[in-house]
Amino acid sequence: MVKKIAPDELQKIVASVPMISASASRLLQITAQADHELMDVVTLVKTDANLTARILKVVNSAAYGLVNRITSVDRAVSYLGQQVIVSIAIESCAGELFSKELSGYEAVGGDLWKHDLRAAIAAREVVIQSGADLSPDLAFTAGLLHDIGKALISDYLRGSAPEAVELISSHDSLDYLAAEEQLVGVDHTVAGEALARAWQLPPELVTVIRHHHHPAMAEEAWRPLVYAVHLGDSIAMIGGFGTGSDSMRYKLDPHYADYFQINANILANVMLVVDTEFNKLSESLSDQGEKS
């Protein structure tokens, strides 16, 4: 029998999660602005010694195979690109949350990060390959953060996966989000939104986290971004990278077609790129050893 999360309890759960660093929070704010420049990112990275060290370690890792070591932040940021920098920043300051075992979903540690990374790449590729007028970088960042709420409610869902699966099988109208709400009183988008607000994430990212399963409910200005992540999330799951018992048990909102022109061929190409890019990116982020 699982225990419901009372409204005041959610705030306590959020308060128990470490805050993201000031520089990571600022980085997410800067990169969410359409008119930001690479130098803004460089300047910010230089203010954070830990982030600088991590970025230099990644760029000089065996995964990139550079002939000459990069020692300047400017060159490292420019070489790696914004999406890798954001991934490093998020992983550095909230890695524990993303690598947590999601026992409530019967998923092992690391599944959440892998799912989020694939959803991020897929959301970006949906934007690029459909030619939509939206920042691929922003779609990537939003994809990376969309499921943070699962790490918050997973412990409360422990032991409930068979019941959730049964609820969905016996009620056509239910998806896993509704099952979470029924079982613990709070679904992962509500929990994620609370954390996103505590972390002072930019409003477009808060909106994605809250509405990525029901994009039509998002504020109109952010709707294309939310649909991009809605699709990225689905593509990660159909590619075999879900987060356990909830994988594939969500509904696809067909109104994505109002924003993205996607046919079967484009979708297949997106899936191919996701596979290739995911392997490359996860290798570079996990590579702790520097090239000799």
């Binding site: 689905s234 159909i238 594939m248 509904k251 696809l252 067909p254 079967a264 979708l267």
Partner: peptide, 15 residues
Amino acid sequence: ANVMDTNDTFQIGKR
């Protein structure tokens, strides 16, 4: 497998 309520484009499992 397919996600729930999916449309033709996303029925990769079926294809």
